[in-house]
Structure formats: structure tokens, C-alpha cells
């Protein structure tokens, strides 16, 4: 049972198992053991970002291509729900239509980008996705009658989802199910081919695998995962806007989470997302304390200023790329 659920890809480390079980238990019981709106928001954000980061890891860690359009697909999911809810009213039909339209649009764009630019070098794909994503961001902020422009869209959800507890478990359940599905994908024969391409694309091609096809399918799957994450995030926040879904800062956050957690290990997404979101919400408090206690020293208080938390995660990111390419998970598995 457990074997099938995890697709035979166990954590393979006692410490990692303990951490993963702790995170899962924490998320599952979050409404009861961490009361308060803030902690529930943190828990929901962790769940959404685990899915978002896991789907990105399929691209970066397993296929070895860098995309900067992941937030675009995240945004398409968010705006799909947002526009449908805001324009068509809070009905289940509208929600389903919004989700379906978002998935279809994501699939079409991912397919087009993949077929056009995955033929050439990885670096070209990175730049093209960056350009397309920024174009989409401009589009969302310019088409304010539809998208609400810079302000975004606030909307009402169908009755049942207005209940916070229900919404939370819907978000968590879908994120967990899709995470397991992604685990299935990377451990399938298809996932093995992706790994082969990552390790040696020349040899993979020589064996007879069509690189473009495999990469494009991976790109589409990742895009769909990100879209669902966007849908979940919109459902949780009951709001969609450029800053919560489309901004380049979120893309940087995703990169940090994947690399710190561990590229090429789905469990890294869980660790990376949890660590990052918790740090984002609680590290600043800690730094405020540290910065306050170092008052009067030169430079140090400025370096430990609460707004500089990203600096330290950035340093951790660089150290990870150099010294721990498999991130925290790689360390724990040794």
C-alpha cells in the first residue's frame, strides 16, 4: 500500500522520514494544533508551494531545463478561478469552467513554448520563458477590465468553500494527491527517460529517444501542476493579483525552494517549501531580535535587518548549488 502510494520512492533516510512525517502531520493537524489565522495561512501556503515547487522540480531537477515561466502558469490558474468567480458569480459550474479553461490555456502555451524553443539549447529556453512570462505579466496588468489590473480580483467562492476549514482541507488534499502523482511520474519509465536526458542528452538521443518530445511533455506536466497550484492558492486567498501569483519575486522564491530543498528529489520540494515559507513568516521576527541586540555595531545590524532575510537565503542558495547539489535531502540521505 505505502509502496504503491509513494511509487516505490521512499525517503531512504531515517532523519528525512521523521522530518517528512512531522511536516505531513503538522499540515494535516494545523487547524487544531496551531490555532490562529496567521499559522493557518502559513500552512495553506506551504501546501500550495509544495505542489508548485514539486512541479518545478520536474523541470529543473529531473529534466534539467530552467524555465522562468512557472509563475505564469501559477498565475493562469489563479486568474482562471478569479475571472470565472468574479464575472460569472460564485457557482460550482463557474469554478469548474474557470479551472478547466486555465488548464487548457496552460497546456496550449506550454506546448507552444516547448515545441518552439526546446529544440535549441537550454539557455535559449530560459530566456524565451523569461520574455513570455514578463509579457504575460504586462498583459495581466494592462487588461484591467478583465483582470483587475494591478489591484487584482477579490471574489466570493461557492458556499461550501467559504468555510475556512473545508477550504484548507481541499487545498491540502489536492496538493497532496498531485504531489503523489508527480512522484509517480518521476518514478515511471517516462521519468527514467527524463533522467537519462538530464544526465547525457547526446546518449539519450542516440539510444533513440526524441528529446523534444520528452522535454515538451515534461514542460506540459509541470505547467499543469503549477496551474492547479494557482487554482488552490486563489481558492485559499479568495483573491488573485499580479503580486501573489505572477511577480518575478515568486519565481525567485521557487528557485530558492527547489535548490535549497534539493533538486531532483521530489521530497526536496516539501522541505524547501516548508523551510522557505516558515522562514518568510517567522525568520524576520528572529532577525529583528538579533538586529536589535547588535545595536551600535557597524554594518551587522543592517545585515541582520528583518527586511534582509532574502540575503541569507540567497547565500544559502549559492552554497547549495556549489556544495550540496542535492540540497537538504541530499545531505540527509548520506
Amino acid at each position: 500500500m505505502l509502496f504503491r502510494l509513494l511509487s516505490g520512492d521512499f525517503p531512504r533516510s531515517r532523519a528525512l522520514t521523521v522530518v517528512l512525517i512531522a511536516i505531513l502531520a503538522g499540515l494535516a493537524l494545523a487547524p487544531f494544533i496551531f490555532p490562529g489565522t496567521r499559522s493557518l495561512n502559513v500552512a495553506a501556503k506551504v501546501a500550495v508551494f509544495v505542489l508548485l515547487v514539486a512541479s518545478y522540480d520536474l523541470l529543473l531537477g529531473y529534466t534539467g531545463i530552467v524555465s522562468f515561466a512557472h509563475t505564469m502558469f501559477f498565475g493562469i490558474g489563479g486568474y482562471g478561478v478569479g475571472i470565472a468567480m468574479a464575472k460569472m458569480g460564485a457557482s460550482w459550474g463557474a469554478l469548474a469552467l474557470g479551472i478547466f479553461a486555465a488548464l487548457a490555456l496552460s497546456l496550449a502555451i506550454a506546448l507552444a513554448i516547448g515545441l518552439l524553443s526546446l529544440r535549441v539549447r537550454a539557455i535559449f529556453f530560459a530566456m524565451i520563458t523569461l520574455a513570455v512570462a514578463s509579457f504575460f505579466q504586462i498583459l495581466a496588468s494592462q487588461m484591467s477590465p478583465v483582470t483587475g489590473g494591478e489591484d487584482g480580483l477579490s471574489f466570493r467562492l461557492p458556499e461550501l468553500l467559504r468555510e475556512r476549514l473545508v477550504a484548507y482541507y481541499v487545498v491540502l488534499g489536492v496538493a497532496l494527491a498531485l504531489f503523489l502523482a508527480l512522484l509517480r511520474v518521476v518514478n515511471s519509465p517516462f521519468g527514467r527517460v527524463l533522467l537519462a536526458i538530464r544526465e547525457n542528452e547526446f546518449r539519450a538521443e542516440a539510444i533513440g529517444y526524441r528529446l523534444v518530445n520528452y522535454r515538451t511533455v515534461a514542460n506540459c506536466l509541470a505547467a499543469l501542476g503549477a496551474t492547479v497550484a494557482g487554482v488552490l492558492y486563489a481558492i485559499w486567498l479568495r483573491y488573485t493579483g499580479p503580486d501573489t501569483t505572477l511577480s518575478f519575486n515568486i519565481m525567485i522564491d521557487i528557485l530558492l525552494m527547489v535548490v535549497i530543498g534539493g533538486m531532483g528529489t521530489m521530497y526536496g520540494a516539501v522541505l524547501g517549501a516548508t523551510l522557505f515559507v516558515v522562514a518568510q513568516n517567522y525568520l524576520q521576527d528572529l532577525m529583528k531580535l538579533a538586529s536589535g541586540s547588535l545595536e551600535g555595531l557597524p554594518l551587522l545590524p543592517a545585515l541582520l535587518h528583518p527586511d534582509r532575510w532574502l540575503l541569507w537565503l540567497g547565500v544559502l542558495f549559492i552554497l547549495c548549488v556549489y556544495y550540496f547539489p542535492a540540497g537538504i535531502v541530499g545531505r540527509l540521505r548520506r
Binding site: 534539467g64 530560459a126 528557485l255 532574502l310 537565503l313 542558495f317 548549488v321 556549489y322
Partner: peptide
């Protein structure tokens, strides 16, 4: 791949 990641990290820091 590492170049893109490292230079992104440099950008952040």
C-alpha cells in the same frame, strides 16, 4: 544549469 542558478543567486544576494 549551474551558471543560471549561480548567477540568479548572485542577483538575489
Amino acid at each position: 544549469l549551474k551558471q543560471i542558478l549561480i548567477t540568479m543567486g548572485g542577483l538575489i544576494v
